[in-house]
């Protein structure tokens, strides 16, 4: 099993990230803000995978960044930032899900499946492209929300954050074999849930 060799762009990005993390750790607010800008979209997308609601995802992303801000002095320099950050984000999301599980269950029960009002990411598309993309995105997120939590999170980490197996194992605290098994079954289930949509668009 090998990991693809990083290109020069990835190396530059990694070097820039180390510079930002080091700067932020030493109290440079500009570095911290640049770090947040770099991770914000990804963090909201991952949180969306846990929570299924964009506003809550924004709040939890902020919570995670706030915890990073308060505890950055405990971050071990030389370690990759992404797994550390996603562990904090995951903990914040799981905590939130646990606290609001009953309330959410009641609200979903009261309003059907609650999918129609899901806001979609904005972009610079034509109205036709936007309609098509919206339909695709809605179908995708509806399917993701039906997955068990362990499958949602592994897909978010792999497909959206591009973490490698070792980093995912570190974030989730599970062996690499379990990472691969979850990933395989998550893809199987997501494909099955999107069967109708994908067949209809093929």
């Amino acid at each position: 099993m090998t990991a693809p060799a990083p290109g020069s762009r990835e190396i530059l990005q990694a070097a820039e990230e180390i510079r930002l993390v080091t700067g932020a750790k030493h109290g440079d607010h500009a570095s911290f803000e640049a770090l947040v800008d770099r991770y914000m979209g990804k963090a909201v997308t991952v949180a969306m995978g846990y929570l299924g609601d964009r506003d809550e995802a924004m709040d939890l992303a902020q919570e995670a960044f706030f915890r990073v801000f308060k505890t950055l002095d405990r971050f071990r320099e030389g370690e990759p930032f992404a797994p550390w950050f996603y562990r904090i984000l995951r903990n914040a999301c799981l905590n939130h899900v646990e606290k609001h599980r009953k309330r959410k269950a009641r609200s979903i029960h009261a309003s059907g499946d609650g999918e129609e009002d899901r806001p979609l990411p904005s972009g610079s598309l034509t109205p036709e492209e936007h309609a098509e993309a919206s339909e695709q995105q809605r179908a995708f997120w509806q399917a993701v929300e039906k997955l068990p939590q362990k499958h949602r999170e592994i897909l978010m980490l792999r497909h959206f954050q591009d973490l490698d197996y070792q980093a995912m194992a570190d974030v989730l605290g599970i062996p690499i074999g379990t990472v691969m098994s979850r990933l395989f079954h998550a893809r199987q289930k997501l494909r099955a849930l999107m069967e109708d949509y994908m067949e209809g668009n093929s």
């Binding site: 914000m40 997308t45 995802a57 995708f140």
Partner: peptide
Amino acid sequence: SRSMQMME
């Protein structure tokens, strides 16, 4: 999945 837009 990768064609989905990030929620910036």
